[in-house]
Each structure stands twice: as structure tokens, then as C-alpha cells.
Amino acid sequence: MRKFFKLNAIAFFSVFSLFLLSCNDDDNNAIEEEMTAELTIVETAQATPALSLLVEALIQADAGLVEVLSGDGPFTVFAPTDDAFAALLESLGNDYNSLEDFDTPEEKELLAKVLTYHVVAGTAALSNDLMQDMRIETFQGENVSVDLNGGVFIGDATNTAAEVIIRDVATTNGVVHVIDKVLLPQEVINALNPPTQNIVETAQATPALSLLVEALIQADAGLVEVLSGDGPFTVFAPTDDAFAALLETLGDNYNSLEDFDTVEEKELLAKILTYHVVSGIAAYATNLTDGMMIATVQSEQVTINLNGGVFIGDATDTDAQVIIANVATTNGVVHVINKILLPQEVLDALQN
């Protein structure tokens, strides 16, 4: 495996964002004139010079994608331009001067995952079928998101969305939307920059999560050991400010986490903490959908709200906001939130 997989995350995204390219109206018109509804998706791409690298990538991945996208469908394909592929290659460094450099089985598999993240199976979704904040499951398995503010934008697991520069290209087996950036799923980002710390180690290395670490220890319920285990886990990790806000609401008897010192109080703290943990899955933001309800280790559910951001609903009237999403770890994923989540069981105990 080349040093591609050790690429520094900050450098990758910094360079990647610098190379987002937009086509002018003349370029877009030229591409549109080359497209016809009498061709399949693959034939449409083959007939469009600005999509030549997409065709090359489909072949290079060696995963039967040409045959799949020549089949009955219907499919929706977000098709990156040659400029978008060139930007991706440049961001990957000197080991990747062309798509032919994806030549090992592992690299071909990674390229296939990138490509299938651009494909939606079972529907031909026109631009007027898309809605603000819609999450769409791709053939790769993760979701892309839709932003209709100022155009049509497709969000991936990075911080920069792709813009649809040509919409609604009809084909015999679906529809193509031409985009100005290669979309990257979280699975590929993790392969590019594999995590080295587990959930507990990640929290210990993050100053803003020091009270979370203290709470895990204070609860005296083996949670440090559990969250250092194999997982996978999804953890909604409250900041120190969130813990401070909770302590303030509890009154003078709780000036610090050390005041959870009786057996009953430690048990209550453990219930609060396990309400922030989902076991058996590493749920990245691209896997979440609006209104989704997720069972926690504590046994009650949290609710996902994607209106205007990513929010986690508990048994109170105030949602927690995810302020840092998708912190990959060796045994799951952490989403940093700005509020302590409280289950009904704890609210009932506090009111008694």
C-alpha cells in the first residue's frame, strides 16, 4: 500500500478544498449538447469528453461497475467532471498522477467505494425531486445530503459540498447530474487517515472532554474498560461546558462530579453516561436520517433532528447540537455535543 493511506487529514482537506473547480456557462452548454436520452448512463459518459476520467475510473476499479451502470436501473448518478478527478488526484500527492496508479487490489477496492458513493440505485431522481436537507442512501451504503440554498449541492463526509453544474441529464436507465467535485464517504476518509486511538484515549487527548473522562471514572461502572473495548460504539460526547451546565442546574449539592459519591448517585451518573452510547454500530453523520430513533446502552432512545444541523433529542425539551461530527476512533465514532442528554429514567429520579 502506498503512502496514500497515511496522508495527513488536515493537509488532505485543505488541498482538496482549494481545487474545487466550477465550469462556466459555455463549458456547461458544451457538455449538455453532447448528452442524449437515447444512451445508457455509461454510454452517456463515454460520449461526453468532460466525463472521460469517470469512465476511466469505472474501468480501473475493476468491480463490474460498467456492466452495472449499463443495466436496467433505474439509477441516479452524480458524475464528477474530469476537473474534479484531476483535483482529487492532485490532493493525493505524487503517488497518484493518474487513475492507473490505483493498481493494487486494496486501491481498486477503495476506488470502487468512491465511485459507488456517487450512485443511487432504484430511482431516477430529478432535481425537482430533491428536498432541502434530504439524505439519500448510495450504492456504497452511506448517505449523501442535499442542500438547495443557492443551487443544488450534494454533501459528502467532508466539509465541502459538490455543486451540481448540469442537472437532469436523461438516459435510458436513469438520470445523471454532473458535479464539480469527487464525493468522499466516511469509509474512504477513514482509510486515507486511519485512527490510532480508541474512544477513551480520544477523550483523554481532548481537553474539552476532560469532564467526560472524569465522569466515566467517577461512575465506577466499568465504562472506561467498556469504551476501550472492541466496539463498535457511537458516542455522543458532551463538552466540559455541557457538564458544567448540568451541575449548575442540579444545585448546591453538586458542585463537581465528585459529589456523585453515593452508590445511588454513581448509578444515576452511569445511566446518564450510557444514554450517550450506542453499541454495535459506528454511526457517522452520513448514516443519520431525520427523525431516526436510536436505542442507547441505557435502553432508552435518542432522536435525530437534521433541521439546520445535526441535533440529538433526549427526554427533555431541548436538543443537544453536534458541534464536532465524525471523530473516527479505532473502536467507533465520537460526535461532540453541547448538552448532557437526559433519559426519562434519570429525570424521574431527579424529581423524586
Results as ranks from 00 to 15, higher is better:
246 L>N: 01
90 E>M: 13
72 D>L: 12
240 D>N: 08
12 F>N: 03
247 L>T: 05
8 N>V: 07
10 I>K: 15
286 T>E: 08
252 D>L: 06
62 D>K: 12
219 A>R: 04
7 L>R: 14
75 F>I: 04
9 A>K: 15
299 S>R: 13
298 Q>M: 08
188 V>A: 08
181 K>F: 10
151 G>T: 11
128 N>M: 13
247 L>N: 04
129 D>T: 13
201 E>Y: 03
314 D>L: 00
17 S>M: 13
123 T>L: 14
7 L>I: 15
203 A>K: 09
321 Q>K: 13
193 N>D: 11
66 V>P: 00
91 S>Q: 10
196 T>W: 03
100 E>H: 02
41 I>A: 09
166 I>L: 15
275 Y>P: 01
83 D>H: 11
152 V>F: 06
166 I>W: 02
235 V>A: 00
339 K>M: 01
295 A>S: 15
297 V>Q: 10
221 A>I: 09
80 P>Y: 08
158 T>N: 11
17 S>Q: 15
95 D>K: 03
25 D>C: 08
140 Q>L: 08
170 A>T: 14
255 N>P: 01
88 L>I: 08
152 V>S: 11
20 L>A: 13
240 D>Q: 07
84 A>Y: 02
104 T>L: 00
295 A>Y: 00
57 A>S: 11
64 G>V: 10
85 F>Q: 06
269 L>F: 02
29 N>P: 02
9 A>S: 14
331 N>K: 04
183 L>K: 04
241 D>S: 09
9 A>R: 15
351 Q>I: 12
19 F>Q: 14
138 T>I: 02
189 I>M: 07
113 K>N: 15
179 I>H: 04
219 A>C: 07
151 G>N: 12
141 G>P: 11
62 D>C: 03
35 M>D: 00
136 I>H: 04
70 S>C: 05
105 P>K: 04
246 L>H: 02
311 F>D: 10
329 T>P: 09
338 N>C: 07
152 V>L: 10
205 A>D: 13
50 A>M: 09
239 T>W: 00
112 A>T: 01
258 E>D: 15
227 L>C: 04
227 L>V: 04
114 V>S: 08
44 T>N: 14
226 V>Y: 06
235 V>T: 02
243 F>C: 01
203 A>L: 03
84 A>M: 05
330 T>F: 09
302 V>H: 01
260 F>H: 01
171 T>E: 09
103 D>L: 07
107 E>P: 03
95 D>H: 05
341 L>M: 00
106 E>L: 05
165 I>S: 13
268 L>S: 08
